[in-house]
Computed example of a mutant assay.
Amino acid sequence: MQQLGNTEQASTLLYLPTAPIVDPTNTTDYQSLVKLNGNHWRKILIILAKLQCPDQNWRDYRDQQLLEQREAISFKNHLEPGNKFHIVAGKASWQRLGLDLADFHPLEESGRLYQKGRIFLTPYPDYRQFPNQLIELLRPRLK
């Protein structure tokens, strides 16, 4: 599998190194993804929902709309074309996509978020590496 969601339609793409196990009848269902892949994917999807939700009700967004139109997750070795926001998560993804940190500017002092145009280099989506403080810093930039 090379993607979750429709990468052509989505305005925001999250790039991760490894695809999850999916139910072929419903590849974007939150409950199914968590059931098949465990807590690791629960965290990824919650962080993505918090980043993409148009209001503060990220739980409903996660359960009803996530990966349906506004965002997608790509496991490809290149950035998708088009005028999209690209969230490249984790150093393994930065390297896989050939992105050089020297071309980006930091968005905060800890050096965990970087930006170059519509491309953002972020930590891997895990609560310890990508806490709410970073979500709140990145979220308005994705609008």
Rank of each mutant, 00 (worst) to 15 (best):
M1S: 14
Q3D: 10
Q3H: 11
Q3K: 07
N6R: 03
E8W: 08
E8R: 14
A10K: 00
P17L: 02
T18F: 15
I21F: 12
T27H: 05
T28C: 14
T28G: 08
L36V: 08
N37I: 06
N37G: 08
N39R: 11
H40Y: 14
W41V: 06
W41I: 05
R42N: 15
I47H: 03
L48K: 00
K50I: 05
L51R: 04
Q52F: 04
C53S: 15
L66E: 00
Q69G: 12
R70L: 11
A72Y: 01
F75V: 03
K76Q: 13
H78E: 11
L79Y: 10
E80P: 01
E80W: 01
P81H: 12
P81T: 11
H86W: 02
I87G: 00
G90P: 06
Q95D: 15
R96D: 12
L99N: 03
L101K: 10
E108P: 06
L113E: 03
Y114E: 08
K116L: 13
G117F: 00
R118T: 13
I119A: 04
F120V: 07
L121S: 07
T122K: 01
P123L: 06
P125H: 04
P125A: 07
Y127E: 12
Q133G: 13
Q133P: 09
L134E: 07
K143Y: 13
